[in-house]
Design a protein around this nucleic acid. Structure first.
Ligand code: FES
Ligand code: FES
Lengths: 148, 148
DNA sequence: TGAAACAGGACTGATATAGTACTATTTAAC
DNA sequence: GTTAAATAGTACTATATCAGTCCTGTTTCA
């Protein structure tokens, strides 16, 4: 299904929530409640998001997490990359020597281009946009995803 | 990493090989050899590709598989969909009621749009293009995938 | 009738994901 | 200083998915 992991999905929810209170420090606990997720899970995500510097953390009493950039400046692609690593459809899209097929196969450069196109598509969607429902997708468009 | 499964990768290899001999019937065994893959694996893939009518199968002695459409008319997206199902980033992109978060979360319509954009990116790449190496991806572009 | 080839499904081992738990560290308030 | 609140880091386990294989049946041609 070419899907993002559940954790990544949660991460988007958390980031959307956080970025709606830009500048405010919010604890993992509070975020978990607002998003309807478990604390340990949210906690794990926030650690990853902190490492990627998408959010800033504050330890100690009254600590928590904060996002500095405006939500319109943070792309979905960044959040995905923070949780899952590089947006790459195959091992070989990231670097040479990683794909088992590399000897027999010269699809590598093409996979790189496809990965790039996918990454760009997701880079154009910001958290600000995610925060409000998009116009419904029509059935005629839906066909493109090869839904049954 | 948002990657396609290995099987899907193999499927593209097989389809590229097959589509380069358009109209010719080739056995699973022969395809396995040409692609450097195991017969049972290739066999499994070809069954799936047949169900999606991307290839046509012929049973019995001298049987095998054939592709009818020109390689320039078959998109990578179709092959992915044949192996993995709909191109959808989240459960809820496919249909309502499938995503656990649906009560708490109104990202659904946005995920649908993103899935659509991704699908469209891959629909524009044909097997004919996959068959020959693409121009190298430059480093400046590579950044878009958030490689380290 | 027999061999070549696909169809369908079932099974197994390996791998990745999801979720949790534990310990250490930092900070503010008292 | 002590305590409590909160994050950091890591390790662990159960589960689900994926990859790969195998078996049995069916079709077709020689
Ligand atoms: S798919 Fe990675 S080298 Fe061909
Ligand atoms: S991500 Fe599926 S409903 Fe929100």
């Amino acid at each position: 299904m070419l899907r993002i992991s559940k954790l990544t999905d949660y991460a988007i929810m958390v980031m959307v929530e956080l970025s709606q209170s830009r500048g405010e420090v919010i604890s993992a606990q509070a975020l978990a409640e607002r998003c309807g997720l478990e604390l340990p899970t949210v906690s794990k995500l926030l650690k990853l998001l902190t490492r990627s510097e998408l959010v800033q953390s504050f330890r100690g009493v009254n600590g928590g997490y904060r996002v500095n950039r405006p939500s319109a400046d943070i792309s979905v692609a960044e959040v995905i990359a923070a949780i899952e690593g590089p947006i790459a459809m195959t091992e070989c899209s990231v670097d040479t020597g990683l794909c088992q097929q590399e000897d027999n196969c010269n699809l590598r450069s093409n996979w790189q281009r496809i990965s790039l196109a996918v990454a760009e598509a997701m880079q154009q969607v910001t958290l600000a946009e995610m925060a409000r429902p998009a116009p419904a997708v029509t059935d005629s468009l839906k066909i493109a995803t090869f839904n049954a």
